[in-house]
Design a protein around this nucleic acid. Structure first.
Lengths: 114, 114
DNA sequence: TTGACATATTCCAATATTGGAATATACTAA
DNA sequence: TTAGTATATTCCAATATTGGAATATGTCAA
């Protein structure tokens, strides 16, 4: 198709989620029912503060997380939990499917040995 | 969390989809009801053959597409259409949501001018 | 004001991604 | 065999991503 531009925008969203640490941050915030501050998340994920801050910033740029400021704390939360959960579920499904394929290939190989 | 390894695997799947051209390829194959060969896809998307071939290869590595060979043609198709459609739907939702946020911010700015 | 703390940003080097061009491989038909 | 076609791979330079270290910014409390 010619509307490659729209895929550019879509890929920006996907790219924001295409990183193990950012996926871990999302998974953590999805499971919590209150906004969490940067240091808290950093400690939970055993990462340094500046790195987590940067990753949260890229998630925020794509509208995936948002912030709530109080005193000198900045607390992050998932903007649209149901939507992000759909995304995560789809990824989990794709991973499961990929693993199943792998194992069925392995089985067909070992079956031939019989 | 400590199981960063699992997020590594998940991010590999997401990365395979984190590219505008690969999203366009997926969208195209999702809408078709028969496998398509490399040159065909390349022409449809107005891209050169080697580039499309490489992108298809990265999609295949993550189990997103698969091939069917006949003569000197290699035809690609989406492995699990419902799952990939879920992924695409989630991304579309996230993009719509982001755009809505943007426009509501813009509205609140113009409202203040009144 | 000052010091202490939370967060953001900059700098930088290592690594990964990207796409075009050229080349290699594979299959078919004559 | 050869030529022709489809696809895959290699090479390479440009660009993007990544994370740590250092620094900057912002807020509070004394």
């Amino acid at each position: 198709m010619d509307d490659i531009v729209i895929y550019e925008f879509k890929s920006q969203i996907v790219k924001a989620l295409a990183n193990p640490l950012r996926l871990a941050i999302c998974a953590y915030l999805l499971n919590e029912n209150s906004p969490k501050c940067v240091n808290h998340i950093a400690k939970k994920l055993n990462q340094n503060q500046s790195n987590i801050s940067k990753h949260l910033s890229t998630l925020q740029k794509e509208g995936i997380v948002s912030v709530e400021k109080e005193a000198n704390y900045v607390r992050y939360y998932i903007q649209n939990k149901p939507l992000l959960q759909c995304f995560i579920d789809a990824v989990n499904g794709l991973l499961e499917y990929k693993i199943k394929q792998h194992s069925s290939v392995l089985e067909s190989i070992t079956d031939k040995d019989k």
